[in-house]
């Protein structure tokens, strides 16, 4: 079992990693890197079946146990199966104009199809709702987290005010008296915002990015060489 669960996965990891590195430097092998990537895509495609199976199992179990909130599991299963059916059988799609007699030639997500309907009137509003919740959470997080505890925090607060006001017409309104073309034009809030983002923010982000890149390189090396095997369920 050690061969199947340890040696072979480590060999695959090492070889695939090496192929990726070699293909970056030796043009002749550039296709090998792509093939390694394709293998992952094939695996990921099969994983959809695994995911679907697991989804069914988890929610069927919840319904069968009839624990708190089991009704939601019922809703999940009904939505999952209906969407699958509508998508697989291209319910309500219009055939491709080149093949008007062949129902299956239509585009699954074409306007007017069942899948399109579910997307347009169910998925789209729900996703937008989840995203818009951010506005509320940003406000409550700002209220709680921004405190002028020390000098650095005061700097952070000042920057936050410039960015917040400079991003809307309030910034233009407040510093409109500074001529844009004059020597102090850069001090207008909307210009100051861009300057802060381009210079200070970029410098900070780059420093973090260099650390991240080195971390990625070092972690990749450890994984390729089998020094770090914890992702396979073994690290000790």
């Amino acid at each position: 079992m050690q061969i199947l669960t340890r040696l072979i996965p480590l060999l695959i990891t090492g070889i695939a990693g090496l192929v990726m590195i070699v293909s970056a430097f030796i043009p002749y092998t550039s296709e090998w890197g792509k093939i390694a990537g394709q293998f992952f895509n094939i695996l990921a495609a099969f994983a959809f079946v695994l995911g679907g199976g697991n989804l069914l199992k988890v929610h069927l179990k919840k319904i069968s146990d009839q624990g708190a909130g089991w009704g939601y599991s019922g809703v999940v299963l009904v939505c999952f199966l209906v969407t699958l059916f509508v998508g697989l059988f291209k319910i309500g799609t219009y055939p491709n104009p080149s093949y008007p007699d062949v129902h299956f030639s239509g585009e699954t997500q074409g306007t007017g199809s069942g899948f399109w309907w579910a997307y347009e009137y169910v998925f789209k509003p729900l996703t937008a709702t989840m995203f818009s919740i951010l506005a509320f959470y940003v406000a409550s997080a700002a209220f709680r987290a921004f405190r002028a505890k020390n000098f650095e925090a005061i700097l952070l607060l000042g920057t936050a005010f410039i960015i917040l006001l400079g991003s809307v017409s309030a910034g233009v309104f407040l510093t409109d008296w500074i001529p844009n073309a004059g020597p102090f034009g850069d001090l207008r809030l909307e210009n100051l915002r861009i300057y802060i983002m381009q210079v200070f923010n970029t410098a900070g982000t780059r420093a973090i990015m260099i650390g991240i890149a080195l971390g990625i390189a070092s972690t990749s090396l450890k994984i390729m060489l089998g020094i770090d095997r914890s992702f396979l369920g073994s690290g000790d």
Partner: peptide, 18 residues
């Protein structure tokens, strides 16, 4: 992601074992 689920199961199983 379902592949992450599989990897996580392996890892947690090994942790409980150890």
């Amino acid at each position: 992601r379902s592949l992450v689920m599989t990897a996580s199961r392996e890892t947690v199983h090994a942790s409980y074992f150890s």
